[in-house]
């Protein structure tokens, strides 16, 4: 595989919990992201799935440096961007852009589409000379499948799917190498979701983009991703290519997650086996000791409370070359026998 474009090492984000009004003292921390590492290669899509509160959106914000990491590194072409400020940060951000979930609140209602999509050029004037901007914006609208004549319209005049296209056009304006998309289609209807997913796939080929694709919908993530990371309470539970995760998962959380997804086919629904997890996700302010998933895991043993399982190829599969040999943070990792 090609050079990694992003290397994330032991990324941690703890939000302090404080008490007192005048004299604030820290009484704890919400461990939103707690030691996440991965690489993103050129032209690749890495999907990050997890339930609400697992920290996947915080990872996205850390990659953009919208949130300062507590510790750890995000290396863009070898340069750690978590410590950058000012002009150097601005220069890096040109190459890493974001597409947000909610196309209703992420577009300024008082700006025209032309201003929204063209705004990145105000911040990075070197990309497009002033006289050339209108043409560039129209090109961008055309690329994402919007009529270039709509350049003077306002966001409210567009449907949800069209607004998401505007958000994507804005993300593309500076010709970035990496796009971090945080739940880009979850607010859209089924028939519109497919249009936007197809658009993103086409743009990836056309502009050789690398995607971080964050979503809670496992089917969509499988569809678009080359590799997938499964996240729970601030940690990666399992990481592998699309086939390894969806067909040969070894982590109990991934297995439960996959079995919970309703299959859109009623044939054989009576025979379908389903792992129902009990209880709720624990608070990230007080995660369980050892393996964070153990409180909901049906395999949990005493050892799981004492040892923190590392994200590595489990011992049982080390040295084998089958699809089950991929990183999985479980002491008792095994494939589920269907």
């Amino acid at each position: 595989m090609s050079e990694p474009i992003l290397q994330v090492r032991d990324l941690v984000k703890h939000f302090p919990l404080t008490q007192g009004i005048l004299f604030k003292r820290q009484i704890g921390a919400v461990k939103a992201v707690d030691g996440v590492s991965f690489d993103l290669h050129k032209g690749e899509t890495l999907g990050i799935v997890g339930e609400s509160g697992c920290g996947k959106s915080t990872v996205a914000r850390l990659l953009m440096n919208l949130e300062r990491a507590t510790s750890g590194q995000v290396l863009y072409k070898g340069q750690d961007i978590t410590r950058l400020r000012g002009r150097a940060l601005k220069a890096v951000r040109r190459n890493i852009q974001m597409v947000f979930q909610d196309p209703y609140t992420s577009l300024n209602p008082r700006m025209t589409v032309g201003d929204i999509v063209g705004e990145p050029f105000d911040i990075h004037p070197e990309v497009a000379p002033r006289g050339d901007r209108r043409r560039r914006v129209q090109e961008l609208l055309d690329v994402v499948g919007l009529n270039p004549e709509y350049i003077n319209r306002y966001p409210h005049q567009f449907s949800g799917g069209q607004r998401q296209r505007i958000g994507i056009a804005r993300g593309l304006a500076l010709r970035p190498e990496v796009i971090v998309a945080d739940e880009p289609v979850s607010a859209l209807d089924v028939s519109i979701q497919a249009q936007v997913i197809n658009l993103m796939a086409r743009l990836q080929d056309e502009f050789d983009l690398s995607y971080i694709f964050i979503a809670h919908d496992l089917s969509i993530v499988r569809h678009i991703s080359d590799r997938v990371a499964v996240m729970y309470l601030g940690k990666f539970m399992e990481l592998g290519d699309e086939d390894q995760i969806y067909e040969h998962s070894t982590h109990p959380y991934t297995q439960a997650l996959l079995s919970a997804v309703p299959v859109p086919d009623p044939a054989g629904r009576e025979q379908r086996k389903r792992i129902i997890l009990h209880g709720d996700v624990p608070s990230p302010a007080a995660p369980p000791s050892g393996c964070v998933f153990r409180t909901r895991c049906w395999k949990a043993q005493e050892r799981c409370a004492r040892e923190v399982p590392l994200l590595a190829v489990p011992e049982a599969f080390r040295g084998t070359h089958g699809p089950a040999a991929h990183p999985s943070a479980c002491l008792f990792a095994e494939e589920l026998k269907g």
Binding site: D189, S191, Q195, S219, R222, Y246, V263, P264
Partner: peptide, 20 residues
């Protein structure tokens, strides 16, 4: 045909054109 399925992997989804 436009929903991605968990048990299938593909690049191109069928998309209903236009808007409601």
């Amino acid at each position: 045909e436009s929903i991605p399925r968990l048990d299938q992997k593909g690049r191109q989804l069928y998309a209903i054109k236009g808007l409601p």
